[in-house]
Design a protein around this nucleic acid. Structure first.
Length: 222
DNA sequence: GCGACAG
DNA sequence: ATCTTGTCGC
């Protein structure tokens, strides 16, 4: 992997094989334990591909649980890695890291538009960013990448386990409101699955997507 | 060999 | 993710 200031840059891979190698290396650092303490601010992070072949990353910080906007941060860059299922973070992490670096208000937890440990190597976007930022993180994806799951009841708050090949629970398919497709929640880093689900539900208003992510997504598209 | 496949 | 308007349904 590339080096910067003599230290490895854990988001830069020159090939898919190298990216997988980095994921295997960093996956051990993921803490699946619950955090203690109150959340005062939550962040929502999303990246949008613009028509001009650029990536526009947005991180929005909201108060918790009142969900009032505190800060929005934007960063636009050229993609350094293509989109490859399972390697999303190598494309989206660089601009997102720049956004977090610019934040004036540091959140106690962050929501990401992608998977956490519900990933082939237990190291999706939310886990990758959580580890690099040493921040409690939660994956909240709009569709499934890995794992088997049943369809949760069509009632707000209903959920079903996401299981890996060995039958271990790696996430939850969560119905955030009636008559909408469920979202795929998994812990990213320094949170338990129960906390992840609770935080997502606490951030849901009248829409399918939790407010921090919905706002970041809306701002990223313009 | 044949599907599946975050954004 | 992107190409794309109006329209049906809760």
């Amino acid at each position: 992997m590339r080096l910067k200031n003599g230290r490895p840059v854990w988001t830069d891979a020159k090939s898919a094989a190298e990216a997988v190698e980095i994921q295997r290396k960093l996956a051990d650092r993921v803490f699946q334990n619950p955090f203690a303490g109150e959340i005062e601010f939550v962040a929502g992070a999303d990246v949008h591909s613009t028509g001009g072949g650029k990536l526009r990353a947005v991180v929005s910080v909201l108060s918790f649980p009142s969900l009032e906007v505190v800060e929005d941060c934007f960063v636009e860059t050229s993609p350094r890695f293509p989109y490859v299922p399972g390697l999303l973070s190598f494309r989206e992490a660089p601009p997102l890291l720049e956004c977090f670096k610019k934040l004036k208000t540091w959140p106690q937890a962050a929501l990401f538009d992608g998977q956490g440990v519900a990933h082939p190597r237990r190291f999706g976007l939310a886990s990758h960013l959580g580890v690099l930022l040493d921040l409690p993180s939660i994956g909240c994806a709009k569709s499934r990448l890995f794992g088997a799951c049943a369809e949760p009841d069509d009632k707000k708050g209903a959920k079903a386990d996401i299981l890996d090949g060995e039958g271990r629970v790696i996430g939850a398919v969560l119905r955030t409101r009636e008559n909408v497709r469920p979202v795929y929640v998994s812990l990213g880093h320094k949170v338990s699955l129960g906390q992840a689900v609770a935080v997502v539900m606490a951030c849901v208003t009248r829409y399918r997507i939790p407010e921090p992510l919905r706002r970041a997504h809306g701002l990223a598209k313009g």
